[in-house]
Design a protein around this nucleic acid. Structure first.
Lengths: 200, 200
DNA sequence: CATCTATGTATCCATTGACAACATTGTGTC
DNA sequence: GACACAATGTTGTCAATGGATACATAGATG
């Protein structure tokens, strides 16, 4: 006797596909993400997902949007913690970025690849901009505390934040130059704050 | 009458596949790279390439290695130009990085994605390390000129080089925050050199 | 010249993403 | 409650793909 089957309507297929796809990404890599396999695992037909996603690229875009939202939340929470001085808060933000990269390496790669796709939908570009616009607020508060030079906080935030992203890209399995990325990122951001030009 | 066909032996199929695949990457994107289409364009059977590449991933790895070699050459040439002071030389290196990213966006993405693949072969990891190890030499010369603080040049090179890579990743169609990436990268690296901490 | 190696061709297979037609259920209105 | 429509699923088909295998052709070597 067949096991009792799910009712005809899944009820929450879109979210289920996204959740399972996120898992599959980190387990099997983005190149092995298969709509048919996801459908089998969710016990729906191979075309069911098409009611929720126009095509495979639409699913990938939804995953990237989800990733940017999560990333933005992580950054916003780290920045919202104001119980320490500017330098400590910056360290906390850097660590949260590195941690996200460590737990979602394939998703992060997909996030950046998707936003650079020629047909990237506006909601993906908007989600990426929202997520990547968190740094200026912290820099502005650092300026108020006299810990950061005057200037456009948006532009000034680029150096440390871009550097951390660059370190993430350059790293290998959470390490770079034989050092844990977490420590290396903190040290590099500290160097960026202090500068490489000697202070006579 | 059929047009005279190529001799049975292509003679240089491996290099031809790599060259055409590099073009296809930037034209159609990495997701649309198709071995069969490459074979058709090169007028060989779809299995011919398998004498040169174990599988599709092996071809992707070869493309990434080629990319790192090109990138390393570009950086080495920019660094070897010693006819200017340290700051100008750094600017030149930054511009060459941004230019490479602008002319090879998909290849650059593949390069980083490939090296982070769990089965990345050692020759790919070595090629990536060689390419990404160019900065310390310039930093050491900057230190000799008194333009860079004392310290490990390998570590000190990370801040500017990682930042440029991060800016490349964050950018969209050669621009970021409404500014050309070329200019933004130069300004950001200058900020990194001078530091974000006020100099009393 | 025979043998081995390198490199190509032809055929087959399983899997995939996309598409179209159809089926089932949920919702809203009268 | 009946009906119409919308939402969401199923079934089947197609073309294309990457991979594998057996075979074919040519180059190199002794």
């Amino acid at each position: 006797m067949k096991t009792p089957k799910r009712p005809y309507h899944h009820g929450n297929l879109r979210d289920a596909v996204i959740e399972l796809a996120l898992k599959s990404l980190e387990t099997h890599g983005s190149q092995n993400l298969s709509l048919r396999e996801l459908s089998r695992d969710l016990e729906v037909s191979h075309s069911a997902f098409r009611r929720h996603f126009a095509d495979k690229q639409a699913l990938l875009n939804a995953l990237a949007i989800h990733g940017f939202e999560q990333y933005g939340d992580v950054l916003a929470r780290a920045i919202a913690d104001r119980d320490a001085d500017f330098d400590s808060r910056l360290v906390k933000v850097v660590r949260s970025m590195v941690r996200f990269a460590g737990t979602h390496p394939v998703l992060l790669e997909l996030m950046f690849a998707s936003k650079n796709h020629p047909d990237a939908p506006p909601e993906l570009l908007e989600a990426s901009e929202r997520a990547l616009y968190s740094g200026p607020q912290l820099i502005a508060e650092g300026q108020k505390a006299g810990r950061v030079i005057p200037g456009d906080p948006i532009r000034l935030a680029l150096a440390p934040f871009a550097a951390v992203h660059g370190l993430i890209a350059l790293s290998q399995n959470g390490a770079l130059l034989g050092a844990p990325l977490d420590r290396l990122a903190r040290e590099t951001v500290e160097q960026i704050i202090m500068g490489l030009r000697p202070r006579d």
